[in-house]
Design a protein around this nucleic acid. Structure first.
Length: 562
RNA sequence: AGCCUGGUGGUGUAAUGGUAGCACAGAGGUUUUUGGUACCUCUAGUUGGGGUUCGAAUCCCUGCCGGGCUGCCA
């Protein structure tokens, strides 16, 4: 991309702000963002949008982006998740260099700031129970009432807070709260909790802390400590911004700018960690990396490329309005990337045997096949061909409709890269199912052209019977049958919208021999069928399992449906 | 109900007072040894009503609709 093209591309509202700030010399022209996941689950496509935004902006504006694990709640957080987060980020291709941080790195500083607020008469220790606090908070239309403990002396607060820290009190018996405004229309400002007592081992700090800061008390300050300039988050934090600002101002520390954007929603799926956790725990899917999951690990296993995901994140755009992206855009991005990258192979999902009666039995030859018509550098390969082959059942019809270009009694088709064949006879089994086709071939048509120049409209894929490799294939479809499982009809749970056919297993497909040489996850296109890769979970007997990443576009199927 | 926030083709996103554009989806076509890809054409939009203005998606007023907010989650 040259400079003028860069100029012309319109900036989203966040980039416009960042650009303006940089030009105005705000933060000395520095741009520093961060990606702050909580290690309580796996990263998903929604996170990818945020990742691309934060790392993308840092790169575009000559800045930096930190990775910060927001580990303020040891109840739900695990190192397993932290590890997976880093694996996924690296796979996507982003590098935080030496800037891996944890909110827990700042527990000491956060504690000192809490003490500072107490000394400034801006925070107090509260003995209210969970229920009492909720009652006094008021509601959407009525102001709250102040806690009876709000006027404790600084000394008393300091002493109590110290004891909280030392573990003198039971979990839930006391909190440290900010003194802001119990009548604020923004409920987050009604004396929010800064610290709660949690009798919980922390994955990083062990048992040294008995109290843990809340999100509101940790996030902005963590940003501040790291010198973040633009703190980008999703819309649901909009109501927290006044609090974010309040802490930075009242503590007198560097004040990053929080900017909110709309999170990503995709139809036919769910995009919340909580819901995904349920899918995993209740066994609706086979784990966080189930290829039907919108997690990055699931998508990777399914055969998505990092590039396809990044392209998608760029195309979905960025704004403040709620959005639901159509899953077709995701599929488009995958096909678009794979079309350029994936080498082509031949395979049949549903084999139908063909005997070529005029081909000498016992003879085998090799035909040349192009590895990728979109990439000359991918070269060619040889595929074995002989008297007995298999084609896909979909490519034969005994009684074909008009404009059906594939094989039918008396019709001629081209076997890709090989010969023209003509169907002479249909053999049926005892159930009158088609069990085999007897065909003839045209020896002159080797390579797929005949010297007489006759037109053969249909070209189909095939495999040689003797050398083909059997494999199992997982065909994945959308996880939900409802476009918006997140808010189905009333009383309807999102798991009721699960698509019962989201996984179709083909037990005995046949592929050309070289497919065995692929590595796990390496993309291939089975011509005319779709994009596939070898599953990461391979059976111990050495047999092959393929995952379908996405089917080819199929305009014939669309037409035939009408 | 109160507060906050948002409304541009089916979906998403541009245009910030001057020709409503792009992508995906949909329809049709050309090319093709993948009914793929590529290419071409078409369909389709400013939430309603007032106002300001030579001129409004854009500014003002008002209605309507969507989303968020009453965790010691993040």
């Amino acid at each position: 991309m040259n400079e003028s093209e860069k100029e012309e591309k319109p900036l989203d509202f966040i980039r416009s702000t960042v650009k303006q700030d940089q030009e105005d010399g705000k933060n000395e022209g520095r741009v520093h963002t961060r990606f702050p996941p909580e290690p309580n689950g796996y990263l998903h496509l929604g996170h990818a949008k945020s990742i691309c935004l934060n790392f993308g902006i840092a790169e575009e504006f000559n800045g930096l982006c930190n990775l910060r694990l927001d580990d303020t709640n040891p109840v739900a957080e695990k190192t397993e998740y932290a590890q997976a987060i880093m694996d996924d980020l690296r796979w996507l291709g982003f590098d935080w260099e030496e800037r891996l941080f944890h909110a827990s790195d700042y527990f000491g500083q956060l504690h000192d700031w809490a003490v500072q607020l107490i000394q400034d008469h801006k925070a107090f220790v509260c003995d209210l129970t969970f229920e009492e606090m909720r009652e006094l908070r008021g509601n959407l239309i009525e102001p709250g009432k102040e806690s009876p403990f709000r006027d404790r002396t600084v000394e008393e607060n300091l002493d109590l807070f110290q004891q909280m820290k030392e573990g003198a009190f039971d979990e839930g018996s006391k909190t440290l709260r900010a003194k802001i405004d119990m009548s604020s229309p923004n409920l987050n400002l009604r004396d929010p909790v800064l610290y709660r007592i949690l009798d919980q081992e922390h994955p990083r700090t062990g048992s040294v802390w008995k109290i843990y800061p809340s999100y509101d008390f940790a996030h902005g300050q963590s940003d501040s400590i790291e010198g973040i300039t633009h703190s980008l988050c999703t819309l649901e934090f909009e109501h927290h911004r006044p609090l974010y600002d309040w802490f930075c101002e009242n503590l007198g520390i560097h004040h990053p700018q929080q900017i909110e954007f709309a999170r990503l929603n995709l139809n036919y799926t769910v995009m919340s960690k909580r819901k995904m956790l349920r899918l995993v725990q209740e066994g609706h899917v086979h784990g966080w990396d189930d290829p039907r999951m919108p997690t990055l690990s699931g998508m990777r296993r399914r055969g998505f490329t990092a590039q396809a995901i990044k392209n998608f994140c760029e195309r979905v755009g960025l704004a403040k309005r709620e959005n639901v992206i159509e899953i077709e855009l995701l599929e488009y991005c995958l096909r678009d990337d794979l079309n350029k990258k994936a080498v082509r192979r031949l395979g049949v999902l549903n084999p139908l045997k063909i005997t070529i009666e005029n081909y000498p039995s016992g003879q085998t030859e090799e035909v040349d096949a192009i590895n990728n018509p979109e990439d000359e550098d991918a070269g060619t390969r040889k595929i074995p061909f002989s008297r007995e082959i298999f084609i896909d059942r979909n490519d034969f019809m005994e009684d074909p409709p008009k404009k059906y270009f594939r094989l039918a009694p008396g019709k001629e088709v081209r076997l890709k890269y090989a010969f023209y064949i003509t169907c002479k006879e249909v053999v049926k089994d005892e159930n009158s199912e088609v069990s085999e086709l007897i065909c003839t071939y045209d020896p002159e048509s080797r390579g797929g052209d005949s010297p007489d120049g006759r037109k053969v409209k249909g070209t189909i894929q095939w495999v040689d019977a003797r050398s083909a490799v059997a494999c199992k294939v997982n065909l994945y479809d959308r996880l939900f049958s409802n476009p918006n499982p997140e808010d189905g009809e009333e009383g309807k749970d999102f798991v009721d919208c699960l698509n019962p056919d989201s996984l179709e297993i083909v037990e005995s497909a046949l592929v050309e021999p070289s497919v065995q040489d692929f590595e796990v996850g390496e993309p291939m296109q089975l011509e005319r069928v779709g994009y596939f890769c070898i599953d990461s979970d391979q059976p111990e007997d050495g047999s092959l399992v393929l995952n379908r990443s996405v089917a080819m576009r199929d305009s014939w199927a669309k037409k035939a449906k009408k």
